[in-house]
């Protein structure tokens, strides 16, 4: 679990260095429109009926399209998708036992309604998370926050997002070295108890607070007066609107006809 988390943090770190996502025509579209289209897609995915396995498969086409068109690393993304599965499997696993109305036979085995709804749940979970992952691959976190601000999200929240993202790596490094130091000094289970761990967390907290004071001084020294300053960006154009409308019409068509 910790390794997985460390991997994700590492990935975030790489992402933060990168200026902008993969080069593709998607990035000529205004980021706000991208965020809205992705959100509409999430709403459509959620609206797929409980037993409509075909519609769920058809909606998987969108993240697949983005991955192929933008040359996103498909294997890496599949690995991250698998992290999602445990809880979804747990909840979906109940359906085949509760909803036992028989539907059809496949390869000589009886298929019941619960099995179909369980596979739809799993498919939808994978599709919606794959969509989020493609969005993150396309847009850098800073421009995501900037677009959110321009969409009317309170500045308190967007500034907060940028700060958490920025300092997440630093403090994770500190936490990891605290953890490593404990590993080196402890044998078996010693030092892994609640009280030691809590003291470690407490001292991490104290250090974080004093770090935040230094951060604030640094921000002041660079002219911070309660607002982060973003560079000017152009407004929405006709091509942005065309992109949004096309995407939504395609989602709607797939939802109706498949």
């Amino acid at each position: 679990m910790l390794e997985q988390k460390a991997q994700v943090v590492e990935l975030m770190r790489r992402q933060s260095v990168r200026e902008e996502g993969c080069p593709s025509a998607f990035l000529q579209v205004d980021r706000r429109i991208l965020i809205i289209v992705w959100f509409v897609f999430a709403a459509f995915t959620v609206s797929v009926p409980k037993f409509a396995i075909d519609t769920a498969v058809a909606f998987a086409a969108f993240p697949f399209f983005v991955i192929v068109a933008c040359r996103l690393p498909i294997l890496k993304m599949l690995r991250r998708l698998l992290i999602v599965l445990p809880f979804i499997l747990l909840v979906a696993a109940a359906n085949p036992f509760i909803d036992t109305r028989p539907v059809c036979e496949m390869f000589g085995l009886p298929v019941n309604a619960g099995m179909i709804s369980a596979s739809v749940i799993i498919l939808k979970a994978l599709v919606s998370v794959a969509a989020v992952l493609t969005l993150v691959e396309l847009i850098s976190f800073n421009s995501l926050c900037e677009s959110l601000l321009r969409m009317g999200v309170p500045e308190v929240f967007t500034t907060q997002l940028m700060l958490v993202y920025r300092y997440g790596f630093l403090l994770s490094d500190e936490a990891q070295s605290l953890g490593k130091a404990r590993e080196l000094r402890s044998f078996g289970k010693r030092g892994k108890g609640l009280s030691t761990a809590s003291k470690m967390i407490g001292s991490l907290l104290v250090r974080s607070v004093s770090r935040s004071e230094r951060v604030y001084k640094a921000m002041l020294a660079r002219g911070y007066k309660g607002k982060l300053i973003y560079k000017e960006s152009k407004g929405l154009g006709a091509s942005d609107a065309a992109f949004a409308v096309t995407a939504c019409v395609i989602f709607l068509m797939v939802r109706i006809f498949i």
């Binding site: 907060q160 700060l163 958490v164 403090l171 607070v209 935040s212 004071e213 951060v215 309660g226």
Partner: peptide
Amino acid sequence: TALMGVAGAF
């Protein structure tokens, strides 16, 4: 503001 940001990272 800075405290909130660092606390989230914490």
